[in-house]
Design a protein around this nucleic acid. Structure first.
Lengths: 330, 330
DNA sequence: CTGAAAGCGCTTACAG
DNA sequence: CTGAAAGCGCTTACAG
């Protein structure tokens, strides 16, 4: 049997209520009794039962993470592990536990969301992506359940979100490529359902426009996913009709695929850029210029926003923008 | 207010006990009442409160994962995300939720372990690595708290564990390298505190021995971590004194570092092998031969063992061996 | 400053 | 086959 608050009360010769108040550090308890109770707790190695507390408090101090439905490949994208780490670091610091759920498809995703909400297991939910017309976001809003999102939602009113400035990040990339003498620049983006895909595409178009170049549809390809093969195929498609001197992609793994294509066809001079700045970029030949999106900070901030809300903290903004950094390489 | 079992009872005109029995699918309840109660639950959109159930049942159906203390780099190793996925898939299938905890150092790691145990939050714990003289394993054994480990523990008696046959896997790698005409083969392993590091080293030595070669200490280096830089430096060290024609590493990221060194020094003919078979291997030049350790299956199996135990299933073995596969490349 | 009592939302042994 | 009651281990409004 585990030791309970009653055992402590007995040993300390006080009531369970008093023990409870000592645990909660209630200021109305005298220092004396605090001492006695604390001693008793130590002696008995007492640890409060989290479940019982949760039931009485009607809050669990648990956050739920919905890992998006997707092919294996998305899940394997290093982005996620970094986000999970960031979430974990802030949450732990604030006394929250984290639960995650991996979904195979959108239906499962929604089911897990509902389970989280209605089982009273979690106090709040963090979504790891925002897609077009996101059904999860809609549902959470309707239910008025606390949540935050990584990725700017289409309709951001009343939702807590954190994101990079994806428009600006891609704008900078393209600007950089132009400054290196490229004007024919291909764009390979992930699935359009992700809001950031569109944002990055806009950045691409605007950067070209600002220098007086018109974007060309045949230089723009959206892939079905984020793995290397997608990048390879997209690149192939572009070169069927065009001869860009540089390709801007929205993901390092896409960039790897592009590189593979370029190497095979010996298109040595074509520059390629990625996004996320995963460590292996540095070890590629040539090494790959990429945008560091600081995924850990995205996770950290998403947890921060959500927990602030749960604790009724005043917030200036309903969102946080995480800085990106263009890491130039070969 | 959320709807509770009482609301359902009222609507169905039965007692809360009966509703509870319907939820638990107790066979003694008549089909009629089952019907009525189920209808009432649907009408009210009733969902049992997981916390209250946990308290009454004295089990939470939550598993806790301790992500090992380590530098960022270990955590970023794709191994972990795959393991997390495997754990998640089996657990969800079996009605378990998953909680994880990220620790910065061994002390924090132990604290989180204790918190998991004593807070009654989780029914069991999964450890993601086994190290020499593992304090977590010892503690869990002493407390007789249910757990499973990924990685064979030094003392495996009475502990549930799952692992690859690391000895055999490395044996096969070295054998393969020998068959390709190499006899001077370097070994770059991760930190020796990991049991698998030692196992793989043994496989290396035995494979050499079986072909009549004596291993040489100057060809063996253990790194401090698993990132590319560690691989680079280890390789440098080996080449200070020797001229191996192949290097067997215990991690793909180490292999990348080795490749970088070899490229810089234009040691073109030296073969390099890795472990884990992460997707980018295929896109390296030359592509990297690696051992697929099936990390997802490791996670899946660890969850399976633990959950079997929690459900008092009879088990034939206290461990599971997950097959590896040597993926030969350039 | 402290205690007795009720309550959080379930489960289950006991009785019928 | 079903219900009333006690219990899981906490918290907290109320009373003193």
């Amino acid at each position: 049997m585990n030791v309970t608050i009653k055992d402590v009360a007995k040993l300390a010769k006080v009531s369970p209520s008093t023990v409870s108040r000592v645990i909660a550090n209630n200021p109305r308890i005298s220092d004396e009794t605090k001492q006695v109770v604390n001693d008793a707790m130590k002696k008995l190695k007492y640890r409060p039962n989290a479940i019982a507390r949760s039931l009485a408090n009607r809050k669990t101090n648990i956050l739920g993470i919905i890992i998006p439905n997707s092919d294996e490949n998305l899940f394997k994208n290093p982005f996620f592990i970094n986000v999970l780490r960031g979430i974990s670091i802030y949450s732990q610091k604030s006394g929250y536990h984290i639960m995650y759920t991996y979904s195979k498809n959108e239906e499962e995703e929604m089911n897990y969301l509902k389970e989280y909400i209605y089982s009273n297991l979690v106090d709040g939910i963090i979504l790891l992506t925002a897609v077009e017309n996101d059904p999860l976001i809609q549902y959470l809003k309707e239910e008025d359940f606390p949540f935050s999102v990584i990725g700017r939602p289409e309709i951001s009113e009343g939702v807590l979100w954190v994101d990079n400035d994806n428009f600006k990040a891609m704008y900078d990339v393209v600007n950089y490529l132009i400054s290196k003498g490229n004007s024919e620049i291909g764009f390979i983006g992930g699935p359009q359902k992700f809001v950031f895909s569109t944002d990055r595409l806009e950045g691409y178009k605007m950067a070209l426009g600002a220098r007086g170049y018109q974007f060309k549809n045949e230089l723009i390809v959206h892939t079905e996913g984020f793995d290397m093969n997608n990048g390879y195929l997209a690149c192939e498609k572009i070169f069927e009709s065009s001869r860009p001197t540089a390709i801007a992609t929205t993901d390092d793994l896409l960039a790897f695929g592009v590189r593979k294509y370029l190497d095979e066809k010996e298109l040595i001079d074509v520059k390629v850029t990625g996004f996320n700045n995963i460590p292996v970029n540095e070890f590629q030949k040539p090494s790959i210029t990429s945008v560091d999106i600081n995924s850990e900070c995205l996770g950290y901030s998403a947890a921060k926003l959500l927990i602030s809300k749960l604790n009724d903290k005043k917030m200036i903004n309903n969102h946080l923008i995480v800085e990106t950094k263009l890491v130039e390489r070969d």
